[in-house]
Simulated scan of single mutants.
Amino acid sequence: MKIHNTRGGRAFDAVNYVFLAGVGLLMLVPFVYVIAGSFATEAEITRRPFFIWPEQFTTAAYQYIFSTPAFPRALITTILVAAVGTLIQLALTVTMAYPLAKRNLRGRRLVLNLVVFAMVFSGGMIPTFLVVKQLGLLNTYWALILPAAINPFSLIIIKNFFQDLPAELEESAKIDGATEVQILLRILLPLSKPILATFALFYAVGIWNDFMSPLLYLSDSSMWTLQMYLRQVTASADLLGTGALDPNYVPPEQGIKFAVIVVATLPILVFYPFLQKHFAKGMLIGSVKG
């Protein structure tokens, strides 16, 4: 008899469900408060320290942030950098993982040892900044993408996935005259959708939430990403600039901060459900063998 069919097993499951539901609600409440605050008036935010439903709905905060040139520019910049950066990181990771999956590759062990070493140790902030400066990448969007183009952990997982695929697939393709590039593009990549979708989301979230790289490498405020503007707005909503509204209009400062947080977080929350089905399979595949 399975333990979940016994009275004790069912009670254990019920306690787990209640506990996990409570933890989930605790994690959800702060975000609900931010959403409610973004639709509340400035007076209500000041008067009520906490609420999950505003007494009076208003979209003044959203109207203000989208009427300014700074915020939409930062939003579009972040979307483009995240999209291009994710494609580049996936392409470089896959093209490096595929040859390392070949056991007969000369120097394979040395390269893998260097990858593991890079995963444990890093050059640090100052050496990385000096390298970016010497390469002439300061005040360019490439500085947000190239320094972290290949993640050692992701590389090892994808390498293990390629390594665990049946060797007969490549052998039959080579008999038919396929090259290594054709094998990778037409055979291995279609089989790698779960793991590629998982790491694509990891890469995209990492670039989207990256705050330190724009802070270090971008001195031009017109090139700032969304996280930089989020940081500046939380310090002072006036830094958004003058919008297309009435110049005498006093913006809801606290509401603007909440609205910017919602807009900065919403795209990631929208994409998560579509890729969630790939998470468990993508993370488990290739993560056992070295």
Rank of each mutant, 00 (worst) to 15 (best):
I76W: 14
A36W: 09
E55K: 12
P49G: 07
M223R: 02
L110V: 13
T46R: 15
I187S: 01
V250L: 13
A143I: 00
S236H: 10
T58Y: 08
S38A: 14
T58A: 08
A40V: 03
R103I: 09
P49K: 10
L196W: 12
F51R: 03
P252R: 04
M212F: 15
T179Y: 07
R7Y: 15
G136K: 08
T59I: 14
L90A: 11
V29L: 10
L188E: 09
V18H: 11
S192V: 01
A197F: 07
G24K: 07
I158T: 00
T41M: 09
A237Q: 05
A200D: 08
M125F: 13
I35R: 03
P72E: 04
I158Y: 02
A70P: 11
F50L: 12
G8R: 10
F57M: 13
F66S: 07
E168T: 10
T86K: 03
K174F: 11
R103C: 06
I268H: 08
L185G: 14
R48F: 14
I187Y: 05
V262Y: 09
V29H: 06
Q56F: 12
A178F: 09
F39Q: 00
W142V: 00
N113V: 13
L185S: 13
Y217I: 00
N104K: 13
V205D: 03
P69F: 13
R106C: 13
D238G: 10
F117C: 07
A143L: 00
